[in-house]
Design a protein around this nucleic acid. Sequence first.
DNA 1: TCAGTTTTGTTGACAAAGCAACAAAGGAGA
DNA 2: TCTCCTTTGTTGCTTTGTCAACAAAACTGA
Lengths: 190, 190
Amino acid sequence: MLPNPNEKLDPRVIRTRSLILDSFGSLLAEKNFENISVQDVTDKAQINRATFYAHFQDKYALLDYSINQMFRNEIKKRTLDVCHYSPDNLRNLILAVCEFLSRIHSDCAQPHQQFESLVEAQIKKQIFGLLSHWLSQSKVKISTEIPATVASWAIYGLASHYSHMKKRPALDKFVDEALPLVAVNLEQFA
Amino acid sequence: MLPNPNEKLDPRVIRTRSLILDSFGSLLAEKNFENISVQDVTDKAQINRATFYAHFQDKYALLDYSINQMFRNEIKKRTLDVCHYSPDNLRNLILAVCEFLSRIHSDCAQPHQQFESLVEAQIKKQIFGLLSHWLSQSKVKISTEIPATVASWAIYGLASHYSHMKKRPALDKFVDEALPLVAVNLEQFA
DNA sequence: TCAGTTTTGTTGACAAAGCAACAAAGGAGA
DNA sequence: TCTCCTTTGTTGCTTTGTCAACAAAACTGA
């Protein structure tokens, strides 16, 4: 049930999880999240339905896990998980979130209420964690909670806005314009 | 251990087998059959070595099974498994064997003695079975054993020869030339 | 030749996945 | 409202896969 990455996992568990995740991913491309049943997922994954429940509590837990994994990979790919606060890193983070959300929206069939809010909760939690990590490395020993909260909401809000725009401007320009507004709250940690 | 296709198979068995087969296939592209260990196969397939032995007696059994499956698919693809004897069907069969062997030789790293003879045994067995099936449908109720034996050896020999030629002629021409020599022994069943 | 390594099959205990069956909850539609 | 149908979690039991350990070949190279 836990995505614990440090302990050694049984190869069967790894296989089953990725079958589930792949199946879920391709179903999201076809259907609304609400219209996807656990049955659908296990059918496409060619695993037993009972096995699904051995890994995830329900399809909501699967979505959480799935989004988390994808976003985590995105961050890792850009090595944003092993760095500190700087305006440049912040810029890259905002870029990453914008691209990630845009991808979600183009890959997934008409996302609805529930879907979006579950995504939002997971992503914001990760942004917050990442920022907290960055800021805690600063020499300045101020509480990071408030600034990290403000910034994570702001960043997600920006990305959400961007990814929903009908005529999206060039991402670089968009981020250039938005960056200072976020950075101003974090300057003290630079 | 049995490739029994009519009984319903546990999904795990199907998965494991195809993991083994895929792994084996890609290893054959890299190495000699003799240099491939069961360890290699299970490593690449990401399964436990003990699991391999639950499915195949050894790597020779795996090769047999693998060749059998591939050739069976080739035959099925050309719907040669659901037909009767006719010069035209015979022509297609010869064509199929030639192409199959040519593919084996281009996909697999320097095949050696042992490898080739195992392939030969399996393929000839299947050709013989197929021809027996064809001939037994004929109105003429003659024993099919001798003609099927002659033809299956001849066909394999032709295909082996063709696939080893340095400068292969156009396959169509080659088969056109060879066909009558094989067909003459089977005419009585037409 | 002989010691050192790798590969091979095999085993038994244990964990994961499959399966069928169940009650319960929800939806859809007369 | 009342059916009929689908989906949901859950359970007891079976089968399959994993793992570590082992002895017995089979290579390797000095």
